[in-house]
Structures are given as structure tokens and as C-alpha cells.
Write a protein that binds this DNA or RNA. Structure first.
Length: 585
RNA sequence: CGGGGCGUAGCGUAGUGGCUAGCGCGCCUGCUUUGGGAGCAGGAGAUCGGGAGUUCGAAUCUCCCCGCCCCGACCA
């Protein structure tokens, strides 16, 4: 295929659009791949569509190679299946709902678990039919509260979603692993750098779950790399500190600590007051901070929850939200304190907390608050703190909760070992073992070898296809523009005619034909009256990895070969150029 | 949904009560120019996000609405 720049439907922009923050967003707009249609929905221009189709093709090949079969559902669906699983209401405002002319409810599918489950139920009824994995590449709709960064979070986006169906847990494990392997091959081929992290299963239900996160500054997820693996911060499990003997520890003692309602002021006061001095200085890590939240469950009932964390840590709201799901967290406001006179803001101590205490507020502590650990903490009276308050001796908790912010050096069970690094990533794939939630809700059963009805167990696996395009752009660009990996480049060769003489145009036309003959698609920059500077800049912005310049040296039988990933260009004899380029891809 | 910001031509922007809304890029016509975003001359393109109000006079002030972007909470 040949595309002539003089005819290609695009307009490159010299300046960054004011509303584009992420590199992928800005470059895809500037290079003429995309136009915004509405918040979170984009029009694909010819070059963009070529890139999207390349990405789609790689994904499809890998799914087929793994033995998964492609189907295609409508995006417009009736509400009934979603009512059966409860998601018609549970999905909340993120679901696009609409009505037909008769007033019947429909939705634009945000994901298709229900439909796949019903399809298998419709056709299959024996264990002999299983396992089966089906997938589709399809447009999804989610009324996102906040579409972001161009393609990174859209309200309309393309997703590859697969579903596996197995007779038992062992089978699910195998199907899951097959998808995991297929995903690794897929992302490797797409040129996406990724980390597989343990994930929270969240709203989908189910157990084992891993995410493919593409490390990128523009990413919305935070993950950790540890000595033994990687995990989304929401899924991290901190190793509990071992209990120690507290027989020799000094008794708890209440001290006046006026105006110390914050950890900083408390530490400063403790260190500057001779009476409180010890053989080292106090630090925030010696203090026990107790924070109260309100939790609202799905029925709308509100309860209070107190959380104790070491004073040098903040509570990570994402981890807290994930830990208490489906209850929703909100801050404990002034009026809530008014309802609980036992709680002295800034001086809350564990003695006033717990289901068995007068406050009856559930009290959960960080796993580092272990039996035998000793703390400075609130004495439940304004201007007073208690020192040497020992867990297991002077106070108890109702249990543990692991929601403190994670820091480098933390010791984890998931992922194993010490935290080495925290980083941002874009979730480009997610695989999980759904289990029987949907099969149960929709009554998907097959007969086993004993003639008994058995509920099928499922896995669900997604790749954000349009998001993957953005991730590639995010990970592969330089200050000049995009740089497509050769596996997904919209076009193989960008042929720049650097000059206005007729022989150059004729030579370029001939070369383009030869490249086509060799199976390579070509953009020819044949624009008249456009200076070479503009052509070079556009070529670099558009990001085709192989650029051939046909210019000055053409008369001597040479063209210039530029690799967007290499430092320098080389001169290649015209009769060798096709073979040379062919080798690159 | 909470917080912050922004809406002037395809893009980037100036203009904070006063004449015909200015500039750069892009676009059109002509001439010239062609190895790193050329030059000259001429030209087209804007209901200043929408509505209501204040005023002799509104892009500019007030109110309401809409849209967009960023941070946070949710997801491929």
C-alpha cells in the first residue's frame, strides 16, 4: 500500500494542543492520528486507524494461536441479563443506559461477562464441551467520571475480552495460565514494556487476579516491585511484625503535652521536654496515630471505624477503599465528633476504641502494631498523651487492617520480600479467575461424567486495545515525535522526497513500487512546494521507524536510510535499499 | 462526585468597559525558493461556549447553564 502525503487525510500540528497533557495524547493529536469527538471519545484518522488495526491484528493472532475462538456481541444489549447478575444497578452511573421507542431498557455494554455466560449456556451442556475460551474485540462504553489523557481513559474504547469456561478449579487454573502466557506474548510483540502485578479482584468478584501494568509517568496505578515480585498497591499485604515479650517494659504513663494535636507537634514536644527524654530522640515512628472514618454500606447504614497506624505513616485511601469494599469511606467530620464525646480530636487513644469499649467503635490496627510494641499515643483528653502504652498489655485491637501507605523497605507477604521501588503504571491488561459468580447467577451448568449438574467456573481476561495504542505512544517517543515499534507501525517506510526535480519524484515512485512488491507499505512525501525541513519534521513526528530520504545523492545512485531508533543515518545504494529495509522489519 | 483551572478562527494566543477583536502557525491566489518548520504581495476564515441581565456602549461586569482540562475517588 502507498500513501501520498499530498493526498493523505491528516494535518500535523506544530504546537501542542492546550488540553493535552500526556505525551501519547499530545503526539497522537499533533501527528494527525486522532481528533477528539467528545470528552473521552476520539475519531481515528487514517494513520491512527492503521496503527489501531496493527495492534488489533497482533492481539487477534496471539489469541487464535492460544486456541481461543473469536465471537462478536452487540454493544447494544437488553438489560435483563444484567439484572440477573445485579449489575444493572450495581454498575451505577458508569453504565450508559438508554431506552428504545417502546420504553424498553437497554445498555451500552461496559463488559460482557453476562453475554458470554449465556452464550455458552445456550450452546453447551456437557463436560465434554469444556474447556472453552472465547473472546471478542469490541467497543465498550463506560460513562467514566473522568475521561483522561486522550486514549488512556475513554468513555468509548476498544477492548479485547476473553472468557474461559471450565468444569473445575484445576481446569480454570490451566485456562488462566494459558491466557497469562498469551498475554505475555502479545505485549512482547506489541513492544509494550510491562510488569505483571498481583491485583485486587475488586468489583468483579473472584479470587486470583493479576494486572499487566505498563510503567509510565502518565499511569494511574501505583505498584511496587519487591525482592520477590510485584503488586498493585491495593493488593499489597504487609508482613505482620512478630509479637515480643513485654514483661520488662516500663509502665504506661500519662503526660501533659499541651497543643500537640498533630504528630509533628507531639514529636517536637516530646524531644524538647527534659522529663520525657530517652537515650535517643523520639520520632514519628514511636507514635501511634488513630484515625476515624465513616463507612457506609450498600444498604446505606453508616458506622465508624478507627484505624491505628504508626505516626510516620499516612493512611493510603486507595488501599483503605479496597480493604473495606463494598463499604464506602468518608471522613469523620466535626458533627461526627460531636456525636462521640469520648473521642477527643487530636488525642484519640486506643483505650477509648474497640467494639468492647464504651464507644463501641471498631478498632483495627496496622500489622506493625504487634503484641509487645510500645507507643506514644493519645490519652483521650485534650493536651494529654500516654507514653509506653504497650499493645497486648495496655490495649487491644479488634483486628488488623493493612491500609497504611507503602514505603520502600517495607516487608511484604504479597509481593514477597522487601519493597524495592514504587512506580506508576498503566493497566493495559487484567486477567482473573472469576470463579462461579456469573455461572451461578445465570445458572450455567453442565453434566459431569456422573450425570450430575455442575456449575461451570470461569475466568475473565481483558486487554485495552485502544489504550494499548496510547501506551505504545507513551513508551516509544522522543522529543521529535512518535517512534512506532516495527511490529505495529502504521506504515513500514516513510519515503521523503528531498528536492523538486522530476528524477527524484520518478525515483521515489519506482522505489515505492519496489517496496510494495517486497510487502512493505509506504508513505511518500510528494508534497510540492513544501520545504525539506517541514517534511523531515513531519516524518519524525509521525514516527514511522524507517525513513528513506531520496535527494541529493540520488544522482549517484544513493539514498539515505534513517532509523528512528538509531543515532545516525546511512547511505545505501539504491539497488540495495529494498533488501536492507526488508531486513529491519 | 469533591477540589483547582480554562473556554476568543483548524491550532497556539493577545485583548479585563469604548472605534472595524489583534498577532503567529495553518489555509487560498500569484511570483520566487527547496537537505532541517523559506521570502514577498494579496486574500478567506470568529454568532468571542450558550442564555439572561447591568450599561449610552459588553469578549471584558453580574447571574444561570453548557463544555473542556488537571488533581483526587473508580476501571481495560
Amino acid at each position: 500500500m502507498q500513501y501520498r502525503m499530498s493526498e493523505l487525510f491528516l494535518r500535523t500540528l506544530r504546537e501542542t494542543p492546550a488540553d493535552a497533557e500526556a505525551a501519547s495524547h499530545s503526539l497522537l493529536i499533533r501527528a494527525g492520528y486522532l481528533r477528539r469527538a467528545a470528552a473521552g471519545s476520539y475519531t481515528w484518522l487514517p494513520l491512527g486507524l492503521l496503527a489501531l488495526n496493527k495492534v488489533t491484528a497482533v492481539i487477534r493472532e496471539e489469541m487464535n494461536r492460544a486456541g481461543f475462538q473469536e465471537v462478536h456481541f452487540p454493544a447494544l444489549l437488553p438489560k435483563e441479563p444484567y439484572e440477573a447478575t445485579g449489575r444493572w444497578s450495581e454498575y451505577g452511573p458508569a453504565l450508559f443506559r438508554l431506552q428504545d421507542r417502546r420504553g424498553a431498557d437497554y445498555l451500552l455494554a461496559p463488559t460482557h461477562e453476562e453475554m458470554f455466560t449465556l452464550l455458552v449456556k445456550d450452546l453447551y451442556s456437557s463436560y465434554k464441551d469444556l474447556p472453552i475460551s472465547l473472546y471478542q474485540i469490541q467497543t465498550k462504553y463506560r460513562d467514566e467520571a473522568r475521561p483522561r489523557a486522550g486514549l488512556l481513559r475513554g468513555r468509548e474504547f476498544v477492548m479485547k475480552d476473553s472468557y474461559s469456561f471450565d468444569i473445575d478449579d484445576a481446569g480454570l487454573e490451566v485456562s488462566y495460565q494459558k491466557h497469562r502466557d498469551a498475554y505475555q506474548r502479545t505485549f512482547d510483540r506489541l513492544g509494550i514494556k510491562y510488569v505483571i502485578v498481583s491485583a485486587q479482584s475488586g468489583a468483579m468478584g473472584g479470587s486470583a487476579s493479576e494486572e499487566f501494568l505498563a510503567p509510565a509517568q502518565a499511569g494511574e496505578d501505583t505498584f511496587v516491585l519487591s525482592e520477590g515480585g510485584a503488586a498493585n498497591v491495593e493488593a499489597i499485604v504487609i508482613a505482620p511484625t512478630a509479637a515480643i515479650n513485654f514483661d520488662s517494659l516500663p509502665a504506661a504513663q500519662v503526660h501533659d503535652t499541651p497543643s500537640t494535636a498533630t504528630i509533628d507537634t507531639l514529636v517536637e514536644f516530646s524531644n524538647s521536654n527534659p522529663e520525657l527524654r530517652i537515650d535517643r530522640s523520639w520520632s514519628a515512628a514511636d507514635t501511634l496515630k488513630n484515625v476515624v472514618f465513616k463507612l457506609t454500606n450498600q444498604q446505606g447504614d453508616v458506622r465508624a471505624l478507627a484505624i491505628g497506624v504508626p505516626g510516620d505513616r499516612e493512611i493510603d485511601m486507595r488501599r483503605l477503599e479496597a480493604a473495606v469494599y463494598p463499604e464506602v469511606v468518608s471522613p469523620f467530620a466535626e458533627e461526627d465528633f460531636a456525636k462521640h464525646p469520648k473521642l477527643v480530636k487530636g488525642y484519640i487513644g486506643p483505650q477509648a476504641l474497640g467494639l468492647n469499649s464504651p464507644s463501641k467503635i471498631q478498632y483495627l490496627v496496622d500489622p506493625r502494631i504487634s503484641v509487645g510494641s510500645s507507643w506514644i499515643t493519645g490519652a483521650n483528653a485534650a493536651g494529654k498523651h500516654v507514653f509506653n502504652l504497650v499493645m497486648g498489655r495496655d490495649f487491644q485491637a479488634d483486628g488488623n487492617i493493612d491500609v497504611a501507605e507503602v514505603q520502600v523497605g517495607d516487608n511484604c507477604l504479597v509481593p514477597t520480600g522487601k519493597v524495592l521501588e514504587l512506580a506508576r503504571g498503566i493497566e493495559v491488561g487484567h486477567i482473573f479467575q472469576l470463579g462461579r459468580k456469573y455461572a451461578q447467577a445465570l445458572d450455567l451448568k453442565v453434566l459431569n461424567e456422573n450425570g450430575e449438574q455442575v456449575t461451570v467456573t470461569m475466568g475473565s481476561y481483558g486487554i485495552g486495545v485502544t489504550r494499548a495504542v496510547a501506551v505504545i505512544a507513551e513508551q516509544h517517543h522522543d522529543e521529535k515525535g512518535l517512534r512506532w515499534p516495527r511490529s505495529v507501525t502504521p506504515v513500514d517506510v516513510h519515503l521523503v522526497i528531498a528536492g523538486k526535480d522530476e528524477p527524484l519524484f520518478n525515483g521515489a515512485t519506482k522505489l515505492a513500487a519496489e517496496l510494495n512488491q517486497a510487502g512493505l507499505s509506504v508513505i511518500i512525501d510528494d508534497r510540492m512546494g513544501v520545504s525539506v525541513g517541514v517534511k523531515f519534521n513531519d516524518a519524525e513526528l509521525i514516527g514511522i521507524p524507517t525513513i528513506i530520504v531520496i535527494g541529493k545523492k540520488y544522482a549517484d545512485g544513493q539514498v539515505e536510510l534513517r532509523d528512528r531508533f538509531a543515532e545516525q543515518s546511512i547511505d545505501v545504494p539504491i539497488d540495495e535499499i529494498v533488501a536492507t529495509v526488508k531486513q529491519l522489519s
